[in-house]
Design a binder for these strands. Structure first.
Lengths: 149, 149
DNA sequence: TTTCAAAATGAATAATTATGAATCAATAAT
DNA sequence: ATTATTGATTCATAATTATTCATTTTGAAA
Protein backbone atom coordinates (compact mmCIF):
# COMPACT_ATOMS: atom_id res chain seq x y z
CA UNK A 1 0.00 0.00 0.00
CA UNK A 2 2.98 2.19 -0.39
CA UNK A 3 1.76 4.50 -3.13
CA UNK A 4 -1.62 4.88 -1.60
CA UNK A 5 0.06 5.94 1.62
CA UNK A 6 2.39 8.36 -0.11
CA UNK A 7 -0.56 9.90 -1.80
CA UNK A 8 -2.21 10.40 1.56
CA UNK A 9 0.99 11.95 2.84
CA UNK A 10 0.79 14.56 0.10
CA UNK A 11 -2.81 15.20 1.09
CA UNK A 12 -1.88 15.64 4.69
CA UNK A 13 1.02 17.98 4.26
CA UNK A 14 -1.07 20.16 1.99
CA UNK A 15 -3.72 20.56 4.62
CA UNK A 16 -1.73 20.48 7.85
CA UNK A 17 1.43 22.02 9.14
CA UNK A 18 3.39 18.88 9.80
CA UNK A 19 6.41 19.69 11.90
CA UNK A 20 7.95 16.27 12.33
CA UNK A 21 7.83 12.80 10.92
CA UNK A 22 6.33 11.57 14.16
CA UNK A 23 3.42 13.95 13.67
CA UNK A 24 2.96 12.50 10.24
CA UNK A 25 2.94 9.01 11.70
CA UNK A 26 0.07 9.88 13.99
CA UNK A 27 -1.88 11.74 11.33
CA UNK A 28 -1.53 8.75 9.07
CA UNK A 29 -2.76 6.51 11.83
CA UNK A 30 -5.98 8.51 11.94
CA UNK A 31 -6.41 7.71 8.27
CA UNK A 32 -5.83 4.05 8.89
CA UNK A 33 -2.21 3.79 7.86
CA UNK A 34 -0.10 2.17 10.54
CA UNK A 35 3.56 2.77 9.85
CA UNK A 36 6.68 3.73 11.70
CA UNK A 37 8.87 6.80 11.45
CA UNK A 38 11.46 4.80 9.55
CA UNK A 39 9.04 4.23 6.73
CA UNK A 40 8.01 7.86 6.72
CA UNK A 41 11.62 8.89 6.42
CA UNK A 42 11.89 6.80 3.29
CA UNK A 43 8.61 8.03 1.90
CA UNK A 44 9.76 11.59 2.40
CA UNK A 45 12.95 10.84 0.57
CA UNK A 46 11.06 9.33 -2.33
CA UNK A 47 8.50 12.08 -2.50
CA UNK A 48 11.30 14.58 -2.22
CA UNK A 49 9.55 16.48 0.47
CA UNK A 50 11.52 19.14 2.26
CA UNK A 51 11.42 20.63 5.69
CA UNK A 52 10.94 24.34 5.26
CA UNK A 53 10.20 27.29 7.45
CA UNK A 54 6.51 28.05 7.63
CA UNK A 55 5.57 31.71 7.89
CA UNK A 56 4.97 31.15 11.59
CA UNK A 57 8.65 30.38 12.05
CA UNK A 58 8.09 26.70 12.66
CA UNK A 59 9.40 23.98 10.45
CA UNK A 60 7.00 22.08 8.24
CA UNK A 61 7.20 19.57 5.46
CA UNK A 62 6.30 20.71 1.96
CA UNK A 63 6.64 19.42 -1.55
CA UNK A 64 9.99 20.39 -2.96
CA UNK A 65 9.92 22.44 -6.12
CA UNK A 66 12.96 20.93 -7.71
CA UNK A 67 13.58 21.82 -11.27
CA UNK A 68 16.74 20.01 -12.11
CA UNK A 69 16.19 16.29 -11.73
CA UNK A 70 14.38 13.79 -13.90
CA UNK A 71 11.59 12.82 -11.57
CA UNK A 72 9.86 10.99 -14.37
CA UNK A 73 11.48 7.68 -13.49
CA UNK A 74 9.41 7.80 -10.41
CA UNK A 75 6.23 8.26 -12.40
CA UNK A 76 7.05 5.36 -14.64
CA UNK A 77 7.54 3.28 -11.55
CA UNK A 78 4.25 4.29 -10.00
CA UNK A 79 2.59 3.68 -13.30
CA UNK A 80 3.94 0.19 -13.62
CA UNK A 81 3.26 -0.83 -10.08
CA UNK A 82 -0.22 0.49 -9.53
CA UNK A 83 -2.01 -0.01 -12.81
CA UNK A 84 -3.92 -3.24 -13.17
CA UNK A 85 -5.89 -3.10 -16.39
CA UNK A 86 -6.51 -0.73 -19.25
CA UNK A 87 -9.50 -0.69 -21.58
CA UNK A 88 -11.32 1.78 -23.77
CA UNK A 89 -14.63 2.65 -25.26
CA UNK A 90 -14.94 5.42 -27.79
CA UNK A 91 -12.76 8.28 -26.69
CA UNK A 92 -12.56 7.18 -23.06
CA UNK A 93 -9.77 5.03 -21.68
CA UNK A 94 -10.58 3.29 -18.43
CA UNK A 95 -7.63 2.51 -16.20
CA UNK A 96 -8.01 0.29 -13.16
CA UNK A 97 -5.47 0.66 -10.37
CA UNK A 98 -4.74 -0.78 -6.98
CA UNK A 99 -7.15 0.32 -4.32
CA UNK A 100 -6.52 3.92 -3.26
CA UNK A 101 -3.87 4.48 -5.88
CA UNK A 102 -5.83 6.03 -8.72
CA UNK A 103 -4.85 9.52 -7.72
CA UNK A 104 -1.17 8.76 -7.61
CA UNK A 105 -1.33 6.85 -10.87
CA UNK A 106 -3.33 9.60 -12.50
CA UNK A 107 -0.80 12.20 -11.52
CA UNK A 108 1.89 9.97 -12.91
CA UNK A 109 0.02 9.68 -16.18
CA UNK A 110 -0.47 13.42 -16.33
CA UNK A 111 3.18 14.01 -15.77
CA UNK A 112 4.23 11.51 -18.37
CA UNK A 113 2.48 13.66 -20.94
CA UNK A 114 1.05 11.09 -23.25
CA UNK A 115 -0.02 12.48 -26.59
CA UNK A 116 -3.70 12.87 -27.47
CA UNK A 117 -4.86 12.77 -23.87
CA UNK A 118 -6.97 15.84 -23.28
CA UNK A 119 -8.06 15.24 -19.71
CA UNK A 120 -8.19 12.82 -16.80
CA UNK A 121 -10.13 12.16 -13.66
CA UNK A 122 -9.34 9.74 -10.85
CA UNK A 123 -11.53 8.05 -8.30
CA UNK A 124 -10.31 5.55 -5.78
CA UNK A 125 -9.21 2.78 -8.10
CA UNK A 126 -10.34 3.95 -11.51
CA UNK A 127 -9.17 6.60 -13.91
CA UNK A 128 -10.97 7.95 -16.93
CA UNK A 129 -8.80 9.44 -19.62
CA UNK A 130 -10.40 11.47 -22.36
CA UNK A 131 -8.70 11.09 -25.72
CA UNK A 132 -8.98 13.75 -28.40
CA UNK A 133 -10.11 11.27 -30.99
CA UNK A 134 -11.49 7.73 -30.61
CA UNK A 135 -9.08 6.60 -33.28
CA UNK A 136 -6.17 7.27 -30.98
CA UNK A 137 -7.47 5.23 -28.09
CA UNK A 138 -6.29 1.76 -29.21
CA UNK A 139 -2.74 2.95 -29.74
CA UNK A 140 -2.60 4.51 -26.30
CA UNK A 141 -4.04 1.42 -24.69
CA UNK A 142 -1.39 -0.64 -26.40
CA UNK A 143 1.29 1.67 -25.16
CA UNK A 144 -0.03 1.39 -21.62
CA UNK A 145 -0.17 -2.35 -21.79
CA UNK A 146 3.37 -2.46 -23.07
CA UNK A 147 4.51 -0.41 -20.11
CA UNK A 148 2.88 -2.56 -17.47
CA UNK A 149 3.72 -5.89 -19.05
CA UNK B 1 30.38 38.31 10.70
CA UNK B 2 26.99 36.78 10.43
CA UNK B 3 25.81 38.05 7.07
CA UNK B 4 29.20 37.64 5.52
CA UNK B 5 29.20 34.06 6.68
CA UNK B 6 25.71 33.40 5.43
CA UNK B 7 26.70 34.80 2.11
CA UNK B 8 29.59 32.39 2.00
CA UNK B 9 27.24 29.58 2.89
CA UNK B 10 25.18 30.37 -0.17
CA UNK B 11 28.35 30.36 -2.22
CA UNK B 12 29.35 27.00 -0.87
CA UNK B 13 26.10 25.19 -1.35
CA UNK B 14 25.92 26.43 -4.90
CA UNK B 15 29.27 24.98 -5.71
CA UNK B 16 29.41 21.87 -3.53
CA UNK B 17 27.10 19.05 -2.65
CA UNK B 18 26.85 19.64 1.06
CA UNK B 19 25.30 16.64 2.71
CA UNK B 20 25.35 17.67 6.34
CA UNK B 21 25.76 20.68 8.52
CA UNK B 22 29.04 19.29 9.80
CA UNK B 23 30.35 19.28 6.24
CA UNK B 24 29.38 22.88 5.98
CA UNK B 25 31.23 23.62 9.19
CA UNK B 26 34.43 22.23 7.79
CA UNK B 27 34.03 23.91 4.41
CA UNK B 28 33.49 27.20 6.16
CA UNK B 29 36.58 26.62 8.21
CA UNK B 30 38.61 26.45 5.01
CA UNK B 31 37.27 29.88 4.17
CA UNK B 32 38.25 31.19 7.55
CA UNK B 33 34.91 31.05 9.31
CA UNK B 34 35.12 29.20 12.58
CA UNK B 35 31.66 28.29 13.79
CA UNK B 36 29.87 25.33 15.26
CA UNK B 37 27.05 23.22 13.93
CA UNK B 38 24.63 25.02 16.22
CA UNK B 39 25.24 28.26 14.42
CA UNK B 40 24.93 26.62 11.05
CA UNK B 41 21.60 25.18 12.05
CA UNK B 42 20.41 28.69 12.79
CA UNK B 43 21.89 30.09 9.60
CA UNK B 44 20.14 27.44 7.60
CA UNK B 45 16.88 28.28 9.25
CA UNK B 46 17.33 31.96 8.46
CA UNK B 47 18.43 31.38 4.92
CA UNK B 48 15.58 28.94 4.50
CA UNK B 49 17.79 26.35 3.02
CA UNK B 50 16.36 22.91 2.56
CA UNK B 51 17.77 19.45 2.50
CA UNK B 52 16.80 17.93 -0.80
CA UNK B 53 17.64 14.85 -2.76
CA UNK B 54 20.42 15.41 -5.21
CA UNK B 55 20.21 13.50 -8.47
CA UNK B 56 22.79 11.09 -7.09
CA UNK B 57 20.34 10.01 -4.41
CA UNK B 58 22.22 11.73 -1.62
CA UNK B 59 20.84 14.54 0.43
CA UNK B 60 22.17 18.02 -0.07
CA UNK B 61 21.35 21.50 1.04
CA UNK B 62 19.86 23.91 -1.49
CA UNK B 63 18.16 27.26 -1.45
CA UNK B 64 14.48 26.81 -0.95
CA UNK B 65 12.28 28.26 -3.64
CA UNK B 66 9.48 29.35 -1.41
CA UNK B 67 6.88 31.52 -2.96
CA UNK B 68 4.47 32.17 -0.17
CA UNK B 69 6.24 34.06 2.55
CA UNK B 70 7.29 37.67 2.86
CA UNK B 71 11.01 37.25 2.86
CA UNK B 72 11.51 40.95 2.44
CA UNK B 73 11.73 41.57 6.18
CA UNK B 74 14.92 39.69 6.03
CA UNK B 75 16.28 41.94 3.32
CA UNK B 76 15.41 45.04 5.25
CA UNK B 77 17.26 43.58 8.17
CA UNK B 78 20.35 42.77 6.16
CA UNK B 79 20.19 46.19 4.62
CA UNK B 80 20.06 47.93 7.96
CA UNK B 81 22.75 45.90 9.57
CA UNK B 82 25.38 45.77 6.89
CA UNK B 83 25.28 49.15 5.21
CA UNK B 84 27.64 51.75 6.60
CA UNK B 85 27.48 54.80 4.40
CA UNK B 86 25.75 55.96 1.26
CA UNK B 87 26.92 58.65 -1.11
CA UNK B 88 26.44 59.58 -4.73
CA UNK B 89 28.01 61.30 -7.66
CA UNK B 90 26.05 61.90 -10.83
CA UNK B 91 23.99 58.84 -11.54
CA UNK B 92 26.05 56.50 -9.37
CA UNK B 93 25.24 55.75 -5.76
CA UNK B 94 28.12 54.35 -3.77
CA UNK B 95 27.17 52.14 -0.86
CA UNK B 96 29.74 51.03 1.69
CA UNK B 97 29.07 47.90 3.67
CA UNK B 98 30.69 45.81 6.32
CA UNK B 99 33.64 43.83 5.08
CA UNK B 100 32.55 40.87 2.96
CA UNK B 101 28.90 41.83 3.05
CA UNK B 102 28.50 43.80 -0.15
CA UNK B 103 27.11 40.85 -2.00
CA UNK B 104 24.49 40.09 0.58
CA UNK B 105 23.56 43.74 0.89
CA UNK B 106 23.40 44.13 -2.87
CA UNK B 107 21.09 41.21 -3.20
CA UNK B 108 18.94 42.71 -0.51
CA UNK B 109 18.82 46.00 -2.38
CA UNK B 110 17.93 44.24 -5.59
CA UNK B 111 15.12 42.41 -3.93
CA UNK B 112 13.75 45.49 -2.27
CA UNK B 113 13.11 46.88 -5.72
CA UNK B 114 13.89 50.52 -5.26
CA UNK B 115 12.58 52.73 -8.01
CA UNK B 116 14.91 54.30 -10.56
CA UNK B 117 17.72 51.83 -9.91
CA UNK B 118 18.74 50.36 -13.22
CA UNK B 119 21.61 48.20 -12.15
CA UNK B 120 23.99 47.22 -9.38
CA UNK B 121 27.36 45.68 -8.84
CA UNK B 122 28.97 44.53 -5.63
CA UNK B 123 32.58 44.08 -4.62
CA UNK B 124 33.71 43.08 -1.18
CA UNK B 125 32.53 46.06 0.79
CA UNK B 126 31.29 48.46 -1.85
CA UNK B 127 28.26 48.59 -4.09
CA UNK B 128 27.70 50.78 -7.11
CA UNK B 129 24.11 51.46 -8.01
CA UNK B 130 23.33 53.02 -11.34
CA UNK B 131 20.36 55.37 -11.25
CA UNK B 132 18.32 56.11 -14.34
CA UNK B 133 18.70 59.87 -13.90
CA UNK B 134 21.12 61.86 -11.73
CA UNK B 135 18.17 63.87 -10.45
CA UNK B 136 16.84 60.81 -8.66
CA UNK B 137 20.03 60.01 -6.81
CA UNK B 138 19.62 62.40 -3.86
CA UNK B 139 16.15 61.14 -3.07
CA UNK B 140 17.31 57.55 -3.09
CA UNK B 141 20.28 58.36 -0.91
CA UNK B 142 17.95 60.03 1.55
CA UNK B 143 15.72 57.01 1.57
CA UNK B 144 18.69 54.76 2.25
CA UNK B 145 19.93 56.95 5.05
CA UNK B 146 16.48 56.96 6.59
CA UNK B 147 16.46 53.20 6.57
CA UNK B 148 19.81 52.74 8.23
CA UNK B 149 19.39 55.55 10.79
C1' DT C 1 34.38 55.25 29.25
C1' DT C 2 30.88 52.51 31.81
C1' DT C 3 26.73 50.27 31.80
C1' DC C 4 22.91 48.12 30.02
C1' DA C 5 20.25 45.60 26.58
C1' DA C 6 20.10 42.93 22.67
C1' DA C 7 22.08 39.81 19.54
C1' DA C 8 25.14 36.19 18.41
C1' DT C 9 27.47 32.20 19.52
C1' DG C 10 29.14 27.86 21.74
C1' DA C 11 28.58 23.78 24.70
C1' DA C 12 25.76 20.35 25.89
C1' DT C 13 21.94 17.90 25.02
C1' DA C 14 17.28 16.86 23.50
C1' DA C 15 14.85 15.90 19.51
C1' DT C 16 14.55 14.30 15.15
C1' DT C 17 15.84 11.79 11.11
C1' DA C 18 18.33 8.24 8.30
C1' DT C 19 19.85 3.73 7.78
C1' DG C 20 21.78 -1.23 8.47
C1' DA C 21 20.10 -5.59 9.55
C1' DA C 22 16.42 -8.64 10.40
C1' DT C 23 11.77 -9.91 9.37
C1' DC C 24 7.77 -10.55 6.80
C1' DA C 25 4.86 -10.96 2.67
C1' DA C 26 4.17 -11.69 -1.95
C1' DT C 27 5.57 -13.70 -6.17
C1' DA C 28 8.12 -16.41 -9.21
C1' DA C 29 10.90 -20.49 -10.10
C1' DT C 30 11.99 -25.36 -9.41
C1' DA D 1 4.30 -27.58 -2.35
C1' DT D 2 8.93 -25.79 -1.39
C1' DT D 3 12.41 -22.71 -2.08
C1' DA D 4 14.41 -18.53 -3.75
C1' DT D 5 13.90 -13.75 -4.79
C1' DT D 6 12.34 -9.27 -4.26
C1' DG D 7 10.44 -5.39 -2.05
C1' DA D 8 8.45 -3.27 1.88
C1' DT D 9 8.50 -2.75 6.51
C1' DT D 10 10.03 -2.67 11.37
C1' DC D 11 13.40 -2.56 14.99
C1' DA D 12 17.28 -0.77 16.85
C1' DT D 13 20.53 2.52 16.57
C1' DA D 14 23.72 5.73 14.44
C1' DA D 15 23.78 10.10 12.57
C1' DT D 16 22.19 14.47 12.20
C1' DT D 17 19.82 18.61 13.52
C1' DA D 18 17.40 21.89 16.66
C1' DT D 19 17.23 24.02 20.91
C1' DT D 20 18.11 25.34 25.78
C1' DC D 21 20.98 27.65 28.64
C1' DA D 22 25.17 30.08 29.63
C1' DT D 23 28.53 33.12 27.91
C1' DT D 24 30.44 36.43 24.94
C1' DT D 25 30.12 40.12 21.84
C1' DT D 26 28.22 44.22 20.06
C1' DG D 27 26.10 48.58 20.00
C1' DA D 28 23.82 52.19 21.94
C1' DA D 29 22.82 55.35 25.78
C1' DA D 30 24.12 57.75 29.75
Amino acid sequence: MRYSRQNKILDIINTHEVETQEKLVSLLKKSGYRVTQATISRDIKELQLVKTLSPSGKYKYTVGTNVDQPISDRYVKIFKETIQTVAYSGNIIVVKTLHGCANAACEAIDNLNFPNVVGSIAGDNTIFLVVNNPDNAPELVNKFNEMIK
